[in-house]
Simulated scan of single mutants.
Amino acid sequence: MADIDAWVWWLIGAAALGIPLVITAMPELGMLAVGAVAGAITAGMGGGVVLQVIVFAIVSCALIAVVRPVAARHRAQKPQLATGIEALKGKQAVVIERVDGQAGGRIKLGGEIWSARSLDAEATFEPGRQVDVVEIEGATAIVM
């Protein structure tokens, strides 16, 4: 055990941190593993044990301080590409059957026929008119 160089121990530590990273998906472990690799590089360049630990701590803390907030911001963002009914909101449709706020009607939206009703209970849209889809409730498009 005493014959193994310090940089090898740092790499073993990096691998030991990398395995739980894959299992638990905790990115902090990956940042600590990168800090251990930095410690291995320091050891390989002839730095003392104290310097190796300092480099490990600085790199690990810096990564956690910088990368973690960026990752949290990305995790909180809505997807750039809307799919499903979210993609239909804001689209234009053509009225096929008279649409009003009470009985509803039919529109052609994205090549498909949808039941629809007016957002404003007083508004009425005649066939052939273009409307904007505001919301989707179940299988009914709310238009204005």
Rank of each mutant, 00 (worst) to 15 (best):
A25I: 13
M26Y: 14
E28C: 11
L29Y: 02
L32C: 08
L32I: 07
A33F: 00
A33H: 01
V34T: 11
G35K: 05
A36M: 11
A38T: 07
A38N: 04
G39F: 02
A40M: 02
I41T: 14
I41Y: 03
A43W: 02
G44W: 12
G46Y: 06
G47D: 02
G48V: 08
V49T: 14
V49Y: 13
Q52P: 07
Q52V: 06
I54H: 02
V55M: 02
V55C: 01
V59T: 05
V59D: 07
V59Q: 04
S60L: 05
S60F: 09
C61R: 09
L63D: 01
L63C: 03
L63A: 05
V67A: 13
V67Q: 03
P69Q: 05
P69Y: 06
V70I: 12
V70K: 12
V70A: 10
A71K: 09
A72E: 12
A72G: 00
R73F: 08
R75G: 01
R75S: 09
K78C: 03
A82K: 13
A82E: 14
T83H: 12
E86D: 14
E86H: 13
A87R: 07
K89D: 01
G90K: 03
K91E: 14
Q92A: 15
A93F: 03
E97W: 08
D100C: 11
D100Q: 08
Q102K: 10
G104Y: 06
G111W: 12
W114E: 07
W114C: 10
W114T: 04
